[in-house]
């Protein structure tokens, strides 16, 4: 079914600026307080740990080798860079297709992909389908959660909290038309991102100078943190 959509929001990410500081990751988690735990008494009990719920993840990707010379010294061509990824609110959202209940849906008005929590049965089909690991299970409530594009902040004329929190100004968010006008098509997607042909993600990437092609020779260096 082809949706008649007025607007499509998306992200811009500049991997040449990102230092992997994870302020976006933490700011996003901070916003969840009162959102995914609406009845929490934060003043008296502190904020919930929300284990494993990471709507914005910072991937550390690197590679290269060390070799030893006859005099014992080393040569190396090691590289590393970071990719901050939330949800790309894809134009062909495989999570929506995979959802058996219709909980995962793409909003007509702005193209944001969100979860209708009351319909979600926590089967994790969306998480298995998404090549970006955007759907994040709330193990305590047994429902799926994900980057909602900060639609409450958008309504107030603000950008998502990850964008506004970034000390390096490496992130941006807007309608795809506006982002393209500002940044063009970018450098194309780089590893560790999957091929954009799978889901038509709304994400423009400026590549790090060490950026490797999708499926490149490097590896994810921080699997425990994402």
């Amino acid at each position: 079914m082809k949706m008649t959509q007025q607007t499509q929001y998306g992200f811009y990410f500049d991997s040449s600026k990102c230092t992997g500081c994870k302020t976006c990751h933490i700011a996003c988690k901070d916003r969840m307080t009162g959102l995914v735990r609406a009845k929490d008494d934060v003043m008296n009990n502190g904020v919930a740990n929300l284990p494993g719920i990471i709507w914005r993840r910072v991937y550390e990707y690197g590679g290269g080798n060390w070799s030893q010379n006859v005099d014992g010294s080393f040569e190396q061509n090691v590289f590393a860079y970071y990719m901050s990824i939330g949800c790309n609110h894809c134009s062909e959202p495989v999570c929506v297709k995979a959802c058996p209940t219709g909980a995962m849906h793409k909003r007509r008005e702005d193209g944001l992909v969100q979860v209708a929590t009351e319909l979600c049965i926590g089967c994790e089909s969306c998480a298995r389908a998404c090549p970006y690991d955007a759907p994040q299970l709330d193990i305590e409530r047994k429902v799926m959660t994900k980057c909602d594009g900060c639609s409450d902040r958008l309504a107030e004329g603000k950008k998502p909290i990850c964008v506004d929190s970034c000390p390096l100004r490496a992130l941006d968010f807007d309608t795809m038309d506006n982002l393209r006008a500002k940044y063009g098509e970018g450098d194309g997607h780089i590893a560790p991102l999957p091929s954009p042909s799978i889901t038509s993600p709304n994400l423009i990437i400026k590549a790090n100078r060490n950026g490797q092609p999708v499926g490149g020779s490097g590896q994810l260096l921080n699997p425990a943190e994402v």
Partner: peptide
């Protein structure tokens, strides 16, 4: 806890 989750406390070692 959020920071412990975001930044793993592991000892870094070369593949060699």
């Amino acid at each position: 806890p959020w920071l412990r989750e975001a930044a793993e406390d592991a000892v870094w070692m070369n593949p060699t």
